[in-house]
Computed example of a mutant assay.
Amino acid sequence: MLHNDPIAPLTDEVISWRHHIHANPELGFQEKETARFVAKKLRSFGVDEVHENIGGTGVVGVLRNGNSTHAIGLRAELDALPVVEKADVPYISKSEGVMHACGHDGHSAMLLGAAKLLSETRSFDGTIYFIFQPAEENEGGSMRMIEDGLFRRFPVEAVYAVHNWPGLKFGTIATRVGPQMAAVDNFELTFEGLGSHAAMPQIGDDPILAASAFVQTVQRIVSRSVDPLSPLVVSITQVHGGNVGNIVPKKVWVQGTCRFFEPGLSDHCEKLVGQIAQGIASAHSLGANLQYKKGYPPVVNTPEATARAIEAASSVLGSENVVTDFAASLGCEDFAYMVRAVGGCYVWIGAGEVGPSEGLHGDKFVFNDGIVPAVLRYWQTLVEQVLPLHSREAAQ
């Protein structure tokens, strides 16, 4: 610990950066101004290199110190969500229909804070890559960065990420070896036929009836085709059809998602969603067109990196505030691609209890700025422990 603790004065600066990013949100692969802001800040800190436009709008800052060849990556996300903000904050979104409703503004600001702190202290021996990735929410920005040579150009021994977690006790960090976030597949299904006048259904067919049957029947995948002890969620998230009160439409469009940990459930869900859709379509004399999209794999924390993360978190918060025995989330995260590529660890930082609309992706979500000091200290401690600076005095 430094005698003159730099965390307190830096905290206010980090919060101001977050509020700026929050007020100017951008969707995935459109984060040009956010990326420009990040790159400008990194250069002002005096990092050794700043690389832009990686995997689209991604940014990587490079900070070296000492002679060690060891290197790690620290990652945050740049993108916002297509949500109309209803939070009562003075820095509310200026972009209509776009909102930082997941805390990526905070993650990026805190990683910038870590970059500034470590640029000033140089309290490590090795190389840190500060990775700011685009399009985490739906478009797989981390995979785009990897495909663009992220880990070939910036080779690391492990990569680490922090995510604020509403509902987890404030002042705690949760992580575990193995799965922490689920895999995700998404699907779009169209039932299509002739339609009819609402008063004369016998002369046509009814894709709304078919879609209704599908919404109910598809749940048999969870309740009757998979071991009840194996986590699986199948959720229908959108149903669209018709625009006139007295006409049964010709077409109904359905969107859904499947969440799971076991890789084999991807093919299983794809097969059964297709079978159920075709069976219902046939029973209703309709056509069915299914597009099933394989999504993110699960986030699977690797043992060595997780041990490092737990050690750092325990140093910062005390071992009694580090949670390792908890249920993994069926939410998903494209950090999974990075961990799969090079190993790493994903941690949740407790943001305290909130209401449903104030949680992640809620339109009244408000990032808890109270977590900033702990995360800055966590990043600093993690780097110092993974890339220890051996004093010259000790070597003499």
Rank of each mutant, 00 (worst) to 15 (best):
Met1Cys: 06
Asn4Tyr: 06
Trp17Arg: 14
Leu27Pro: 00
Lys41Trp: 01
Gly46Arg: 08
Gly58Leu: 04
Leu63Ile: 09
Asn65Tyr: 01
Gly73Met: 05
Pro82Glu: 10
Cys102Pro: 04
Gly103Phe: 02
His104Val: 10
Gly106Ala: 11
Leu118Arg: 10
Ser119Pro: 02
Tyr129Met: 06
Gln133Asp: 01
Glu136Phe: 05
Gly140Ala: 10
Met145Gln: 07
Val159Thr: 14
Ala161Pro: 03
Pro166Asp: 02
Gly171Gln: 03
Ala174Asp: 04
Gln180Tyr: 01
Asp185Gln: 04
Glu188Lys: 14
Gly193Tyr: 09
Ala199Trp: 00
Met200Gly: 07
Asp205Asn: 15
Pro207Met: 12
Arg224His: 10
Asp227Thr: 05
Val233Asn: 03
Lys250Leu: 08
Lys251Val: 09
Cys258Glu: 05
Arg259Ile: 12
Pro263Ile: 08
Gln275Gly: 10
Ile276Thr: 04
Leu286Glu: 05
Tyr292Arg: 13
Tyr292Gly: 12
Lys293Leu: 13
Ala305Met: 09
Glu311Asn: 12
Ala312Cys: 11
Ala313Val: 07
Leu317Gln: 11
Ser319Arg: 15
Asn321Cys: 08
Leu330Asn: 05
Arg340Tyr: 00
His361Cys: 13
Phe365Gln: 02
Gln385Met: 15
Val386Thr: 15
Val386Met: 10
Arg392Met: 11
